Simulated scan of single mutants.
Amino acid sequence: MKNVLEINNLHVSFQTYAGEVHAVRGVDLHLEKGETLAIVGESGSGKSVTAQSVMRLIPSPPGKIKQGEILFEEKDLTKVSQRDMFRLRGSEIGMIFQDPMTSLNPTMTVGKQIMEGLKWHQKMNLSDAKKRAVEMLRLVGIPLPEKRVNQYPHQFSGGMRQRAMIAIALACNPKILIADEPTTALDVTIQAQILELMKELQHKTETAIILITHDLGVVAESAERVAVMYGGKVVETGRVEEIFNRSRHPYTWGLMGSMPRLDWQQDVELHPIPGSPPDLFDPPKGCPFADRCPHAMHICHEEMPEETEVSDSHRVSCWLEHPQAPSVSGENNNVKVHIGSK
């Protein structure tokens, strides 16, 4: 299937009073039409910066896309003009931000905020835009949309505000929807409803979704493919079943081992990942996970491993894939995987 988005060798840095932060360091990703790609990793791994780079929302200064390309329908978004990006945002690429209360304008009704994009991108008149806004609120499951369209964000509950954000993002039928931790501030019941809503809307519109999260339960529920990020790099990518059942990177094992599971018996111990993420003011020259990895070898600290193709859809960057690497297992992290020489 043709890719609707390709990110190649993306590097993003921020200049601060303390020096340069190398937030994203050579990220390669692709997104197919109609699929959901989840980007996972702990805070500071570069997930949101990668997504904001696609939207060209990196504040400059201090941020800068230093290298790489972001191809949307064969158009490099790192090189298009700001005017062209204004046309693309909302109409071709939509985004749901983490906190709807700070993302929605408190001085405007929810209806007007949906209508803004419709009037700007689709040149609708006021009457048609309002009808479409009501339709979108109804589509995302907000009751009494004819009334709610005239209300302000503070009159909505947390779940309804997130639904309103989805309505704004999907109003112009974008080809890509970027959801940056869309369920973080919601309770589990509302979270399940939002995820189900996104899947239903995706099925109707064939919108491709980039889902940014640190919640592996959300990933299992919603995504087809997963990219695991750490220290500004993608360390493993694969289909959901490959990442959950046959992961190959010790960092992915660590994520799995720190997540409780329903099929565990009593007294199963969680295994948190010891240590801290790398200092991105002075990134390591080798594998970014080497200082925290229980299987690290000397070369892990000295040189970044090349990407190994495990299958057509599964790739990993780890020295344990080298033919001369020792045999290791992820079973200590509650992950039954065995790799390396026998």
Score class of each variant (00 low, 15 high):
20 E>F: 07
54 V>D: 08
37 L>Y: 14
33 K>C: 05
56 R>V: 03
55 M>G: 07
9 N>T: 00
43 S>D: 00
34 G>Q: 08
66 K>E: 15
33 K>W: 02
50 T>R: 01
30 H>W: 14
59 P>T: 00
68 G>I: 08
59 P>R: 00
67 Q>E: 15
72 F>W: 13
25 R>V: 04
68 G>H: 15
72 F>P: 15
17 Y>K: 11
50 T>F: 07
19 G>L: 02
47 K>E: 12
39 I>H: 12
74 E>Y: 06
40 V>R: 00
38 A>Q: 06
14 F>A: 03
23 A>M: 07
67 Q>R: 14
22 H>I: 09
16 T>K: 02
71 L>H: 12
11 H>Q: 08
75 K>H: 10
54 V>W: 13
76 D>N: 15
27 V>H: 04
61 P>A: 06
61 P>R: 10
61 P>I: 05
49 V>Y: 03
37 L>N: 15
39 I>S: 09
71 L>C: 10
22 H>S: 03
11 H>D: 13
67 Q>K: 15
59 P>F: 02
57 L>W: 05
63 G>W: 06
23 A>Y: 09
48 S>G: 05
61 P>D: 11
56 R>Q: 15
44 G>H: 01
27 V>E: 04
58 I>R: 00
52 Q>E: 12
57 L>V: 13
76 D>S: 05
10 L>K: 07
67 Q>Y: 12
29 L>A: 08
52 Q>V: 06
22 H>C: 05
61 P>C: 07
28 D>F: 05
70 I>F: 13
33 K>N: 05
17 Y>A: 11
21 V>K: 00
54 V>Q: 10
42 E>N: 01
59 P>L: 01
75 K>D: 15
53 S>V: 08
22 H>Q: 13
56 R>A: 06
12 V>R: 00
19 G>F: 06
55 M>E: 09
49 V>G: 03
37 L>M: 13
15 Q>H: 12
34 G>V: 08
10 L>M: 13
58 I>P: 07
69 E>N: 10
19 G>W: 01
69 E>S: 15
59 P>H: 01
57 L>F: 10
35 E>S: 10
38 A>H: 08
63 G>R: 03
42 E>R: 00
47 K>V: 06
21 V>W: 08
20 E>Q: 14
53 S>I: 09
25 R>W: 03
49 V>N: 02
73 E>F: 09
53 S>K: 04
32 E>I: 02
73 E>L: 10
44 G>V: 01
62 P>R: 07
53 S>P: 09
10 L>W: 10
22 H>M: 05
75 K>A: 11
